[in-house]
Simulated scan of single mutants.
Amino acid sequence: MAFPASPRLRFREMQASDAPQLLAMFADDYAQGIYPAMQDDGAIARWIAWNQENYRVHGYGLWLTETHGGEFIGDCGLTWQNADGRPVLEIGYHVTLSQRGQGYALEAARAALAFGFAHTKADEITSIVSPDNPASIAVASKLHNEKREYTKPDGAKRLLFFTRRAAGAI
């Protein structure tokens, strides 16, 4: 399997043994406010299994991100999502509390964007962000060159940041 390339980070498939680090990543107050469902061992096990299925079916998913020295940073990668009534290839990224503010999310997302255009036929790659998540908005604003709003079927507002293949040079 191919992985994105990044100056400070390496990417690898998630494994069941990564569960404690992933659970801790979603445990701080900020992460709990954005991802309230990711607060127990079962949710993390389903997260890992979903990504492992994505690796099997698509050849990519959210990968675990680490420094080249092996320090846990978070996860980042590509998954298919539904946005505004259509499938979109999305870059997702999460960074553990102790590593936030060091540019890792943007670095990982740029690597995932380049990987996505090199290894998929997607015409655009997106990032779906809650308007209540200023940290992810800042990353997506630097990563992508276009944005629009949409409303999920449950009424929740979302921002859809995107880069089209023709504009995908980063």
Rank of each mutant, 00 (worst) to 15 (best):
His94Leu: 01
Arg100Ser: 07
Pro87Met: 08
Ile128Ala: 07
Arg46Asn: 10
Leu143Tyr: 06
Tyr35Asn: 13
Asp75His: 12
Glu53Pro: 00
Val95Asn: 01
Leu23Thr: 10
Ile170Asn: 07
Arg12Asp: 04
Gln39Leu: 01
Ala105Arg: 03
Ser6Leu: 06
Val57Pro: 02
Gly168Met: 09
Ser127Met: 06
Asp123Met: 07
Arg8Ile: 05
Ser17Gly: 09
Tyr30Ile: 13
Gln21Gly: 11
Asn54Arg: 11
Val57Phe: 08
Trp47Thr: 01
Ile73Met: 01
Ala2His: 15
Arg148Lys: 15
Leu22Arg: 05
Leu159Arg: 02
His119Ile: 04
Ile34Ser: 00
His58Arg: 14
Ile73Lys: 00
Ser136Glu: 04
Leu62Met: 14
Gln39Glu: 11
Leu64Gln: 07
Asp29Leu: 12
Ala135Phe: 05
Asp18Ala: 05
Pro87Cys: 04
Gly155Trp: 00
Glu149Val: 06
Glu124Leu: 15
Phe162Asp: 00
Leu106Asp: 10
Arg165Val: 08
Cys76Lys: 06
Lys157Val: 13
Gln102Leu: 07
Asp18Tyr: 03
Ala112Arg: 01
Leu22Ile: 15
Leu62Trp: 10
Trp63Phe: 15
Leu143Lys: 07
Gly77Thr: 12
Ser141Pro: 02
Tyr104Asn: 03
Phe115Thr: 05
Leu64Glu: 02
Phe11Thr: 02
Pro4Phe: 11
Phe72Arg: 05
Phe162His: 07
Met38Phe: 09
Gly42Lys: 09
Cys76Phe: 06
Ala5Val: 15
Asp40Leu: 02
Asn54His: 13
Pro4Arg: 10
Ser98Lys: 10
Leu160Glu: 08
Ala19Pro: 00
Glu66Trp: 03
Ile91Pro: 04
Asp40Ile: 01
Ser136Ile: 02
Gly70Gln: 08
Met14Glu: 02
Phe26Asp: 03
Phe72Cys: 02
Arg12Ile: 04
Ala5Ser: 14
Thr120Cys: 12
Val139Asp: 00
Asp75Lys: 02
Ser17Glu: 12
Asp84Trp: 09
Arg148Trp: 08
Ala140Glu: 03
Ala105Tyr: 03
Cys76Ala: 14
Ala37Tyr: 06
Ala156Arg: 14
Arg158Trp: 07
Asp40Gly: 10
Gly74Gln: 07
Gln15Thr: 11
Leu113Ser: 14
Arg8Leu: 04
Met38Lys: 10
Arg56Thr: 12
Met38His: 08
Arg8Tyr: 02
Phe161Cys: 03
Trp80His: 14
Ala122Pro: 02
Ile34Arg: 00
Leu106Val: 11
Ile125Thr: 10
Leu159Ala: 07
Ile170Phe: 07
Pro36Ser: 04
Ile125Val: 14
Glu107Ala: 04
Pro20Val: 13
Ser136Phe: 01
Gly69Tyr: 00
Glu124Asn: 08
Leu23Gln: 12
